[in-house]
Amino acid sequence: MPGSAHRLVGLIILCPALALAAGKGGSEGGHGRAAESGRIAEDTAEANPPAATDFNCEKPGNPVEAMVCQDDSLTRQDNRLEKVYALALEQAQQGRPGAEAKLIAEQRRWVKSLKDCVKTEDMHMCLGDVYIMRITQLQAAWGLAPSLTPLRYVCKGNATRTVLATFYRTHPPTVKLEYNGSTAILHQGLSGSGARYAAPGLELWIKGREASITWRGEPLDCSSQPSP
Results as ranks from 00 to 15, higher is better:
E106I: 03
A99Q: 10
R39C: 09
K112S: 14
L177H: 01
L138P: 00
R108M: 03
C126Q: 01
D54F: 09
K59L: 14
S4T: 10
Q137I: 00
D72A: 07
G29L: 15
E178M: 08
L151Q: 14
T174C: 08
I132W: 05
L202C: 04
P219E: 08
A86S: 13
K156H: 14
T183P: 04
L14E: 09
C126W: 01
Q91K: 15
N48L: 07
A198M: 06
G30F: 10
R76I: 11
E46M: 06
V84D: 01
H6T: 07
G38E: 10
V9H: 13
L190G: 12
G189P: 07
L74M: 00
Q77L: 11
E36L: 11
S227I: 07
N158Y: 07
V68M: 00
D116C: 01
P97E: 05
G3A: 15
R108D: 03
A35P: 09
K24C: 13
Q188L: 04
F55C: 04
W205Y: 12
T170S: 08
D129F: 10
I132P: 03
G192E: 15
D129Q: 06
N48P: 00
L164Y: 02
R80K: 06
T170M: 11
K83T: 00
A41M: 09
N56Q: 01
W142K: 14
K112H: 05
P50W: 09
A99V: 14
R216H: 05
T214W: 07
A159F: 07
R33C: 03
L114R: 01
P200S: 06
K119P: 03
L18H: 13
M67E: 05
K115M: 05
S212I: 04
L220C: 09
L202G: 03
W205E: 06
S182A: 13
D72T: 02
I132Y: 02
A184E: 07
K115W: 13
S212T: 06
H187S: 11
R80M: 04
I185F: 02
A195L: 11
S191R: 04
E28D: 12
L186K: 02
A140R: 02
R196C: 12
A145T: 14
R109Q: 15
V9M: 09
S212F: 11
K207D: 12
V154C: 00
L114P: 00
E90R: 05
S191C: 14
P200K: 07
Y168A: 04
Y131W: 01
L204M: 12
N79W: 05
D116M: 01
